[in-house]
Computed example of a mutant assay.
Amino acid sequence: MNAEPPDPLEGFDATVHAPNRLRICALLDTAGEAEFGLVQQQLGFSASVLSKHVAVLMDAGYVEQRKAVRDTRQRVWLHLTRRGRAAYRGHLAALRAIVGPSDPAP
């Protein structure tokens, strides 16, 4: 019996799709782990906007945080979980399937 390849559109993830959360996932996918303040600075978000979106990603099990004291201040580092990385990459595949192959301009 031939199994059909999985439909890439099944990877579309509404949690990841929100533009700010997509940008957070993209940054964390590349960085591996990043300090909250650096994510905030890189993306140009206020602390409250970043916190709100990170909370949604954490509730979905896509992002975890690690807290530690550095330079006498408590710091928070963020990273994608395995589930979060899979959701992000599946979402990218779904977006690529929706828009089709890119055709370089002549």
Rank of each mutant, 00 (worst) to 15 (best):
L57Y: 11
F45D: 00
V69F: 09
R83T: 01
C25Q: 08
A87K: 04
K67C: 05
D103C: 06
A94G: 04
D71M: 00
G100Q: 08
A34R: 15
P8G: 06
A14L: 14
P101R: 13
S51A: 12
G11E: 13
A47P: 00
Q41W: 07
A14D: 07
A87Q: 00
A18Q: 15
P106I: 10
L38F: 12
A60H: 09
A55M: 06
V49H: 02
I98C: 00
F12C: 01
L80P: 08
W77C: 00
L38G: 03
L28N: 13
V16T: 04
V54P: 03
W77F: 11
L27T: 05
E33M: 03
P6I: 15
E10Y: 11
P8N: 01
A47E: 03
I24P: 00
A105H: 08
F12Q: 07
D71I: 00
W77G: 00
G11T: 13
G61K: 03
L27Q: 02
H17M: 04
V54E: 13
G100R: 07
V76K: 04
A47G: 05
G37A: 13
I24K: 05
R82Q: 04
W77E: 02
H17F: 10
F36E: 11
T81K: 02
Q41P: 00
D71R: 07
G90M: 10
T81L: 04
G84I: 14
A47S: 04
A3V: 09
K52R: 08
Q65D: 07
D59T: 14
E64V: 04
A93T: 08
G84Y: 06
R70D: 14
N20M: 14
P5N: 10
A94P: 02
A26W: 08
G11V: 14
A105C: 00
P106Y: 09
T30L: 13
D13I: 06
L43W: 12
P19H: 07
A3C: 03
D71G: 00
H17P: 02
